[in-house]
Structure formats: structure tokens, C-alpha cells
């Protein structure tokens, strides 16, 4: 029972990380109908920005965080402006391939800048110490991640309900043509969406860096586990991404505890296959009706 509780809590916390990454994917998919396969590299890039500010320039933690997040937003804008905007109207494979190609470009650039080895953060970025509740130990990084993903989720909810840009984004998600016809600048909506998604990805990267360090090899592989989370919740649903992330985190940790730690690596992908076989639209996704 203690084992179960410990791994369950760990799963919820790690799930928060997956949920954050998943929210970024869902945002982009909702607004632009592009599935961002480069999410792993975006996560890593944001984390590395913060690492460089701390290590190369010796900035204080708060300034590094701000600079890293700002840098990520700029990268998000640039990705949309330079590549994906030019591919509007192309078939779906072009968009998939473009994000895959972007992931390779970033991988190359990051290898140039930061090299192939795993880099830990030089100072403690996340405040606090592990919380012990009864016999369950909760690491402070994961607690922060978990609460931050809840905060991001709530903030996005308010943003979509209350703010003009948020409502533009919802309208764009509904239909590009209708949105244009009522005067929404769809292209700037795309840009803002990519900016927000890159911002969220950078948050994930910073937390991963604080927890296990950053490496061009391992970090994108962890971030890829957001995909099962996205599909579990449904591609169109931000709530779904949150729940999906947590469920994937729990199942991964429990299978690691009860089957084998090795097996935990592929548990998310087995979940992914099962979802695709039995309920491709996910929990809260829209079931699309196709007409010829």
C-alpha cells in the first residue's frame, strides 16, 4: 500500500509535467491544425536558454527564467513566421514533415551550442525541499511542476474566456474561414499560439533541467510522452490534456513499480496504441464526421 501510494503520487506529479507539454501541443493543434512533433526540441531549447543564462552569463535565477521564457516566445513566433505560415493550404503530411524537420534543425543547432552531454543546472532553480507527508515523499520540483501546470491550465481558461486574443483563438480553432470573415487576423493568431506553446514548452524544459538535467539525447524522448497524454484526453481538449498527462504519469509509474522499471519506458506508447485502436478521438475529443 505504501509502495502503491508513493508511486501513485509520483505518477500524478510526473503527469503534471506531461500535461504541461501536452497543453502546448493541444493549443497549436486547436488553432492551426498542425501537430507539433518538435515539442521535445522546444522543451529542450527553453531549458537550455535558462541554463545558458545561469552558467554563461551568471544571471540571477529570476532574470534567467524571464529571459529563457522570453527567448522561447520569440523562437515560437519565428517558427510560425518562417516555416509553417508558408505551408498553409498544403496537405497534412507537409505540416507533419515540417515539424519533424524543425526538430532535426533544432537538434543540430543545440548540439552545436551545448554539445551532446547531459548538463545539470548549476544552481538550485526551484525553491523548497522535498515534502514528506506521512510515508509519501514528494519532490519539490515535481510539486512545483504539478501546481504550475494547474496554474497554466487555469490561466489559459481565463485567457480563452475573458481576453480578446483568447476569443480570437477559439474562433480560429472553430473555423479559419469564418474567423477571417469576421475580421480576425488569423495569421497573427497563429503566431501568438506558437508563442504561447513555446512558452509552455520552455517551462517544461526548465523543470526537467532542474530535476534531471538537460541532454540532446534523453530530454526530447521524455517530452514525447506528452503525445499519449494528448491523445488520451482528445486532441481538441485542454482539460483532456491535463487529465491525460496525469493518467499517463500514474500508469507509467505504477507499471514501473509493479511490472518492471524497464517496462515503464514503453507503457505510454502501449497506452497510445490502445487508445488509437479503441477510442481514437480520446476522452473529450470531437468525433469527426467526414463527408465526401
Amino acid at each position: 500500500m505504501e509502495l502503491f501510494l508513493q508511486f501513485f503520487v509520483n505518477g500524478v506529479m510526473v503527469g503534471g509535467l506531461y500535461a504541461l507539454a501536452a497543453i502546448g501541443i493541444v493549443l497549436i493543434y486547436k488553432a492551426t491544425r498542425v501537430f507539433n512533433f518538435a515539442v521535445g526540441e522546444l522543451v529542450l531549447l527553453g531549458g537550455f536558454f535558462c541554463w545558458s543564462c545561469l552558467t554563461w552569463f551568471k544571471f540571477p535565477v529570476w532574470l534567467s527564467l524571464l529571459l529563457a521564457l522570453a527567448g522561447a516566445i520569440i523562437i515560437g513566433f519565428l517558427i510560425e513566421r518562417l516555416t509553417l505560415r508558408k505551408l498553409i493550404g498544403q496537405p497534412i503530411l507537409a505540416a507533419i514533415m515540417a515539424t519533424l524537420a524543425l526538430s532535426q534543425v533544432f537538434r543540430g543547432l543545440m548540439l552545436f551550442a551545448w554539445g551532446p552531454s547531459t548538463l545539470p543546472y548549476p544552481t538550485k532553480v526551484i525553491p523548497g525541499s522535498p515534502l514528506v507527508a506521512g510515508f509519501v515523499v514528494m519532490s519539490n520540483e515535481l510539486l512545483w511542476t504539478f501546481f504550475l501546470s494547474i496554474i497554466v491550465f487555469l490561466a489559459l481558461g481565463v485567457f480563452f474566456k475573458r481576453y480578446r486574443m483568447g476569443m480570437f483563438m477559439r474562433a480560429t480553432a472553430e473555423s479559419h474561414q469564418t474567423a477571417r470573415s469576421i475580421g480576425i487576423d488569423v495569421k497573427s493568431v497563429f503566431g501568438v499560439t506558437w508563442g504561447i506553446a513555446a512558452f509552455v514548452a520552455a517551462l517544461v524544459g526548465i523543470f526537467m533541467g532542474a530535476r534531471v538535467g538537460l541532454g540532446v539525447g534523453p530530454t526530447p524522448l521524455i517530452a514525447l510522452k506528452a503525445f499519449p497524454a494528448v491523445l488520451f484526453g482528445g486532441l481538441e481538449s485542454i482539460t483532456g490534456a491535463l487529465i491525460g498527462g496525469i493518467v499517463v504519469g500514474i500508469l507509467e509509474n505504477l507499471s514501473g513499480a509493479y511490472i518492471s522499471p524497464n517496462f515503464a519506458e514503453i507503457t505510454p506508447y502501449i497506452i497510445l496504441l490502445l487508445i488509437l485502436l479503441f477510442r481514437p478521438e480520446g476522452l473529450f475529443g470531437l468525433k469527426r464526421i467526414e463527408r465526401i
Binding site: 516555416t83 515540417a98 519533424l100 524537420a101 524543425l102 532535426q104 534543425v105 537538434r107 543540430g108 548540439l111
Partner: peptide, 10 residues
Amino acid sequence: GPFVFGLIIL
């Protein structure tokens, strides 16, 4: 390698 490949694809 990956950098040039990604750019060529784009």
C-alpha cells in the same frame, strides 16, 4: 548532419 537535413526538408 541533422541541421542540414532539416533545412533541406524545410
